[in-house]
Design a binder for these strands. Structure first.
Lengths: 202, 202, 202, 202
DNA sequence: AATGAATGAGGCTTCATTCAT
DNA sequence: AATGAATGAAGCCTCATTCAT
């Protein structure tokens, strides 16, 4: 049985995902968890503290698998990118996901706490930077002359936007979507077909 | 000298762009315009009425140039895309742009008014759809096997994300950014070599 | 018929006089005036704004008569002191008087507003300083070697303390009290008996 | 090392001295002592219990020396008064003194406990009454025709007010202040000069 | 066209206190 | 002896909105 602390965070994610930070009141959260408002303040310093807790505790957990992908020694950069896209879209599209809140509501963090958010964002963006670097190394033409950080952010931005318009119940599956998005950006480097032959070394 | 009506809308854009719909109060807007709260209700039926007015009046104006680009008979699809990117990034990166509010705060519109928003969104997204279709027509390989709407949304998402991380005072200019982003997605279709005539074929 | 603004201030005085600043809630004030809480915030910026308004508007009015006494050309210093004591005690002893609130609750003013309070206090204390100076001029022995500001504050402190222990319904009248207190401090200078003969000199 | 019980009382004094009874929360006290709120309720029945404990335990201790002065067989009344003033001012001026809390916050005690406060106040005021009586006995002119309780309260009020305006870092020392205040009220009876020669009679 | 007065509802947060451990 | 969890009540203040002028 989850603690109130955990239940509060879960409800926060659900509600802020749907209504945004300012659109979610502490009372709504309390009602959803079936506790009193004051209990929330017993566990968290303030409403903003809820966001911070999400960024510090829940987001890292959610980014863990992405890290495994980026560090997998057996994959080419292109394969990693493809795998990461699939994973990331899955995360983003999952109902109530923290990432949505993370990506959309972070701008409401007060200046004094913005550093915490930026740091966690940097860590995640770096994963993609790493993948892109590997792709560049394996294919000199890939993302040629492009600022690597901008590439990373652009890709992230593209995928994150899906949370807004992707229709889980529509006729296009999440896997199809991942494939399509991969194709959009993979035009600029050699298709993974070529690299598919699996790395004979090892 | 702009009317109060216009000043109110301008202030609404600025504030909602920064703080979101729920994070912006009628009082904030009134204070920014230096009028009384009541004056706002004199011009607009309600707070939501402000959003609607934006979507009905300001967004179309902002999308007007995009429409000119999309309909320009003298440009290839690739050229249009490039021109549109430049224009769109400029809009989005400009502080206080309506498009940001439009793209992010639309979800707070009440159900009864959602149709208005969806219609205007459809119109804008259609511009890109149109451009993409032209590109496909001119280059059969471009965006092959891809759902055209998803391509449009992905591209939009990518560009809109720039508003979050682009640093106006950084070392990369808006024009450079537009070029880079164009390159990222243009990999999948024939480069505008033809028009660029720069590339002496190496 | 007094405006809500005035009624709010009056109720504030009454309540804070009885329960202190922190012991008086905005709701109590609203209930006493029979208006809604929000109306109070329509007229005053904050709870502290109520205190400030008292200090800026009501206290000056209350100190007006004291000023007339201090400036009366026909009275000796000793006479002025006596008259002021009587007046001041009356003010302080009257239930719900601003001066009580002023003297006791001023310490809850935030630092940023303390200057306003200090200035008004300085003005009032100066009246007594002025009276004491006149007494010293008329009787070289009076308050000899004493710092004049300390004398003024001490005297004020003595009189203001009466608000705590004076029993309006006890056997000692306010006038008796005024006489006694006058005697306590008048020991150090020539008794007004001597001066009573109206100052034939000029 | 002081017990938590003692540390709580000390913190209570400090905080209520600065912010008053209603302005001091149990949490503030707990934070200052670095214990949990519950621990306070473990030692004291309620918040008001803290005040009562002060009045019953700390105040008597603080008034102990005053008692020694009042009962010293070797001093004249005037000498006692002077000595007491010096002592009292010292107590009052010391940061975080109980007496301030005692004198100012007693009015927030609930009716059912008011008797406890009044009794302790009576005891302390009686010390001065006693001193004044001795002065009157030694100098028939002193405080002639004055209600002795009112004299005592007035004197106390005068000295207690110092806590509000006395500036520890100003150019006037506490001893100077004691001297001046003594002079203000000693005008009405024979100056201690005369008595300084130790009173060989007896 | 513009605004000052007023408000009910609700916002976030703190309060003193109880209880189980 | 000490505390973490929990809470109902209350605290100050802001909200969007209406109305009379």
């Amino acid at each position: 049985m989850p603690s109130n602390y955990d239940k509060i965070l879960k409800a926060t994610i659900d509600l802020m995902n749907e209504k945004g930070y300012h659109g979610t009141s502490v009372k709504m959260i309390a009602d959803k968890v079936n506790i009193s408002k004051s209990t929330i303040f017993h566990h968290f310093k303030s409403k903003e503290g809820l966001l911070l807790a999400l960024f510090e505790e829940v987001v890292p957990a959610a980014t863990n698998e992405a890290m495994l992908i980026a560090n997998d020694k057996n994959l080419t950069g292109a394969e990693k990118l493809k795998k990461w896209i699939r994973h990331h879209l899955n995360e983003v599209a999952t109902e109530g996901d923290v990432l949505n809140v993370y990506l959309r509501e972070s701008r409401f963090i007060s200046d004094s706490n913005k550093a915490i958010y930026k740091e966690s964002m940097r860590v995640y963006a770096n994963l993609i930077v790493k993948i892109i670097k590997q792709i560049q190394k394996e294919d000199k033409q890939a993302f040629k002359d492009l600022d690597i950080k901008i590439v990373a952010h652009s890709i992230l931005g593209m995928y994150n936007s899906a949370v807004i318009w992707f229709d889980k119940d529509g006729k296009i599956s999440l896997d199809d979507l991942a494939d399509m998005m991969y194709k959009i950006i993979s035009g600029s480097f050699q298709k993974p077909k070529a690299t598919r032959k699996k790395k004979t070394t090892k």
